[in-house]
Amino acid sequence: MNDKPVEEMSFEEAMAELEKVVGDLERGDVSLEESINLYKRGADLKARCEAKLKEAEEKVAAITLDSEGNPDGLKPVEGL
């Protein structure tokens, strides 16, 4: 398991570790206590991935296009 705090991970880092956590849990060759810790870490990683995806969606949604379909700058997104 990665020691890097989840809140400091990029989307790609969090997704890669989440895949590893799921794989470890699916194999079932870890102790009950370790399974619980992995499950909690997995929940935190999932939340991080969802937050980073939401940020990206908001950035994409903020892009406006001109009459020719070209990016015309960014408009502010409420709450950011």
Results as ranks from 00 to 15, higher is better:
1 M>A: 14
1 M>H: 04
2 N>G: 06
2 N>E: 09
4 K>L: 13
5 P>C: 07
6 V>A: 00
6 V>M: 00
6 V>L: 04
7 E>C: 01
7 E>Q: 12
7 E>T: 12
7 E>L: 08
8 E>I: 07
8 E>M: 15
8 E>S: 15
9 M>K: 01
9 M>W: 02
11 F>Y: 11
11 F>N: 05
12 E>M: 11
12 E>R: 11
12 E>F: 11
13 E>D: 01
13 E>I: 00
14 A>K: 03
14 A>V: 01
15 M>G: 03
16 A>K: 04
16 A>R: 04
17 E>R: 02
17 E>W: 00
17 E>P: 01
18 L>V: 02
18 L>F: 15
18 L>C: 06
20 K>W: 05
20 K>G: 10
22 V>C: 04
23 G>H: 00
23 G>K: 03
24 D>E: 14
24 D>S: 09
24 D>W: 11
25 L>C: 01
25 L>N: 04
26 E>L: 04
26 E>I: 05
26 E>K: 14
27 R>M: 14
27 R>Y: 11
28 G>H: 10
29 D>Y: 13
30 V>I: 14
30 V>Y: 09
30 V>C: 03
30 V>W: 13
31 S>F: 05
32 L>E: 14
32 L>K: 15
33 E>R: 07
34 E>I: 08
35 S>W: 03
35 S>F: 00
36 I>C: 12
36 I>F: 04
37 N>D: 15
37 N>V: 06
37 N>Y: 08
37 N>I: 05
38 L>W: 03
39 Y>G: 13
39 Y>T: 14
39 Y>V: 01
39 Y>Q: 06
40 K>L: 02
40 K>I: 10
41 R>F: 00
41 R>H: 10
42 G>E: 10
43 A>R: 10
43 A>K: 05
43 A>L: 09
43 A>C: 03
44 D>F: 14
44 D>N: 12
45 L>R: 02
45 L>V: 04
45 L>M: 05
45 L>E: 08
45 L>S: 11
45 L>T: 00
46 K>M: 12
48 R>M: 02
48 R>K: 14
48 R>Q: 07
49 C>E: 09
51 A>I: 12
51 A>G: 15
53 L>E: 07
54 K>Q: 06
54 K>L: 06
55 E>W: 15
55 E>M: 13
55 E>C: 01
55 E>P: 00
55 E>D: 13
56 A>K: 11
56 A>R: 08
58 E>G: 03
58 E>W: 10
58 E>H: 08
58 E>S: 07
58 E>A: 05
58 E>P: 06
59 K>A: 10
61 A>G: 02
61 A>S: 08
61 A>M: 09
62 A>T: 00
62 A>S: 10
63 I>P: 01
64 T>D: 09
64 T>W: 02
66 D>L: 06
66 D>G: 02
66 D>V: 05
67 S>F: 09
68 E>C: 07
68 E>T: 12
68 E>P: 09
69 G>M: 06
70 N>D: 15
72 D>C: 13
72 D>Q: 01
73 G>Q: 04
73 G>E: 00
73 G>P: 02
73 G>T: 04
74 L>M: 13
74 L>N: 07
74 L>W: 07
75 K>E: 06
75 K>P: 01
75 K>R: 08
76 P>E: 09
76 P>W: 02
77 V>S: 13
77 V>H: 08
78 E>L: 09
78 E>V: 09
78 E>Q: 10
79 G>R: 14
79 G>V: 00
79 G>Y: 12
79 G>W: 09
80 L>F: 12
